[in-house]
Simulated scan of single mutants.
Amino acid sequence: MGIYTLERTQAIPSSLEKVWDFISSPDNLKVITPDYMGFDIVSRNLSSKMYPGMIISYKVSPLMGLKFLWVTEITQVKEFEFFVDEQRVGPYKFWHHQHHLKEIDGGVLMTDIVNYQPPFGILGDLCNTLIIRKKLQEIFNFRTQKVQELFGKF
């Protein structure tokens, strides 16, 4: 019944403002999510800018085409530096995702830190070892590729 961490960094050859505008817009979540996940935002009247307290509801199919409702809350935002989303309803027992940006020579360093706990105790730990961790890495690999397509390779 562990809490696991996935950390990823990506250097992006673009301005801090452009990267922030892209990653902090809920509309772009679908762009950086693999099509097979069937990602659909179901929230109505979402603001184009994230703010603390914002609730985003969506449907996803991470495994075997099963649709899950996933509700996240944006709990913290420091413009051009970071924001945090936390699961309120969804497939994980615990989900806390930090998105950090830092200006570097020639662009921006984007760092994601995801702390998560699968459901179902020891069975969830086994599923993490066999499936979940690999699936999360695959999703973040896809995202890295999409960000490179959009902003270029560093």
Rank of each mutant, 00 (worst) to 15 (best):
N28P: 05
N28M: 05
L29A: 09
L29R: 00
L29H: 03
K30C: 02
K30E: 14
K30I: 15
K30A: 14
V31P: 01
V31D: 13
V31H: 08
I32P: 02
T33I: 09
T33R: 04
P34Y: 04
D35E: 15
Y36V: 09
Y36N: 07
Y36Q: 09
M37C: 04
G38E: 03
G38H: 03
F39H: 06
F39R: 00
D40L: 03
I41N: 00
I41W: 01
I41E: 00
I41F: 04
I41P: 00
I41V: 12
V42F: 09
V42N: 04
V42C: 03
N45C: 01
N45F: 06
N45Q: 11
L46P: 01
S47E: 08
S47G: 03
S47C: 06
S48A: 11
S48D: 11
S48V: 13
K49F: 07
K49T: 14
K49S: 11
M50G: 03
M50P: 00
M50D: 01
M50Y: 04
Y51V: 08
Y51E: 15
P52K: 11
P52N: 06
P52A: 08
P52R: 06
G53Q: 08
M54G: 04
M54Y: 06
M54W: 09
M54N: 05
I55F: 07
I55H: 05
I55Q: 05
I56A: 01
I56P: 00
I56E: 12
S57D: 14
S57Q: 13
S57M: 11
Y58I: 01
Y58A: 08
Y58Q: 07
K59S: 09
V60S: 13
V60D: 02
S61F: 05
S61C: 13
S61E: 12
S61H: 10
P62N: 09
P62K: 02
L63W: 13
L63Q: 05
L63D: 01
L63G: 04
L63N: 04
M64P: 01
M64A: 13
G65R: 12
G65D: 10
L66C: 01
L66V: 15
K67F: 03
K67E: 10
K67C: 02
F68C: 07
W70I: 02
V71T: 14
T72V: 15
T72D: 09
T72R: 02
E73D: 03
E73T: 11
I74S: 02
I74D: 03
I74T: 08
I74V: 15
I74A: 06
T75N: 06
T75P: 01
Q76C: 04
Q76I: 07
V77Y: 07
V77F: 10
V77P: 00
V77C: 06
V77I: 10
K78V: 14
K78S: 13
E79K: 14
E79H: 12
E81N: 14
E81R: 15
E81H: 15
E81G: 07
F82I: 07
F83T: 01
V84Y: 08
V84A: 11
V84E: 05
V84F: 11
D85N: 11
D85S: 05
D85T: 12
E86K: 15
Q87W: 10
Q87F: 10
R88F: 06
R88Q: 15
V89E: 12
V89F: 08
V89W: 03
P91H: 13
P91C: 04
Y92S: 09
F94E: 12
F94W: 09
W95I: 05
W95H: 15
W95D: 12
H96S: 10
H97K: 14
Q98A: 09
Q98W: 12
H100S: 12
H100W: 09
H100M: 11
